[in-house]
Amino acid sequence: MDSAFDLLALSPPGWGGNLLMGLLRTLQIAVGAYALGLVIGLLGALGKLHGGPVLRWGLEFYTTVIRAIPELVLILLLYYAGTDLLNIVRESMGLERMDISGLWAGIYVIGLVQGAYSTEVFRGAFQSVPHGQVEAGRAMGLRPLTVLRRITLPIMLPYALPGLSNLWLITTKDTALLAVVGFSELALETRQAAGATREYFMFYMVAGGLYLAVTLVSTLGFGLLERRLRRGQPSQT
């Protein structure tokens, strides 16, 4: 059993360093994709609530279709469609074709998928802001953007937070799907390590442990964040 654990050493011939690099890439992609998803979600929710009929219909189509198709299929579709679109644009500008790097492609596809889910989370949270608050803000002469920044967002965030923390956990786990497409992150590094050493069981257990650690730390962090955002609100017992 000694030799099996030697395989986890940080420097080659051990695979520990590769796994940690993979974990770092996973976290980079997850953070980037989550941020992109939040931006899309905020804009999407505002569009769904205040936009015209065409925008609303388009957003409804986006969230329904994205949420009805498996992530794996979407990741492939968005990846190919994205690279092709980018190259068409680049060729029309007289530039050479290029491949998107794994990191940016991962952020873009996962972010676009997460955007559909966070649109729904934000929409629900926006709707739970009492209307009187917004009216009061407007009556004070605040401009629409100031109302959004100082009234709607702070009131809405505690309602959105449980959904958002759930989405973050889903995002970190979704990055594993990128292994199927061939982006090197934790799941793919693990598969390569396991395949090269034939220690399948151990390496997948270690990878599972790493993902679990990310989840547990995140849950703790979101718990603290929620307590801070809810300060000043009556405690729920």
Binding site: T190, Y200, Y204
Partner: peptide, 18 residues
């Protein structure tokens, strides 16, 4: 709930299977 299904699947198929 804290680990990706893909890893669970590979752990069971490749890991236990081996």
């Amino acid at each position: 709930r804290g680990t990706p299904l893909l890893i669970q699947l590979w752990l069971i198929y490749y890991g236990l299977g081996s």
